[in-house]
Amino acid sequence: MSEATPILSSLGLAKAFKGPDGVVRVLESVDLTVAPGESVSIRGESGAGKTTLLYLISALETPDRGELHWDGVNVMKKSASWRARRRGDFMGFVFQAYYLIPELNALENVLIARRLVGKVTPADRQRATELLERVGLKERLRHTGQQLSGGERQRVALARALINRPRLILADEPTGNLDEHTGDEVMDLLLNLTNEEQTALVLVTHNPTFAERTHRHLFLKAGEMQV
């Protein structure tokens, strides 16, 4: 696993924000390497910078300093439009609040991620349907977000994250809005599916049990990564 080019590698990532009381240094120097198919959990206290780190490694935020490589490519040397396009098929996101598009049904919500990177083919529809069946939503394909429960919405978001066969999934507190039982189910699906699809996973969570189920467990403290 460690022999191959890392899916993701960051070196000395730092980020500070200007606040009303001056500059807040969120991340001092973060080194993170994720191998293909590897799952990594990141824990940390609230405000430790876990979400900021996810936004930095997905290039949604620009670091103040440091290097970021996706599949060996130095991302910060590329244009913003290149980063956006590459992000679309290179990585998938699962957020705490699902972020389904309310005007679309479950199948359409999954396929929208495909539409963003190219034309939707019958094979894509087939895969979206299979993914939704895989997450237990076979009977809910035509249901809109409002007609689904929280757990079902997160399953749709999970299928959406996987539709483009990304190399990396970034999951930000994916069970944060769910009850314990549903959270367990969603986490099982997340880990099983990323494992089946040979997709690397960076999981931000407060839950030590979920964190324990990944290959590596990291802890973010005082703006730096600790093993």
């Binding site: 997905s58 949604l60 956006a84 996101f93 929208i112």
Partner: peptide
């Protein structure tokens, strides 16, 4: 979300 999924 659209930005995260690659929208310009």
């Amino acid at each position: 979300l659209l930005g995260a999924m690659g929208a310009l």
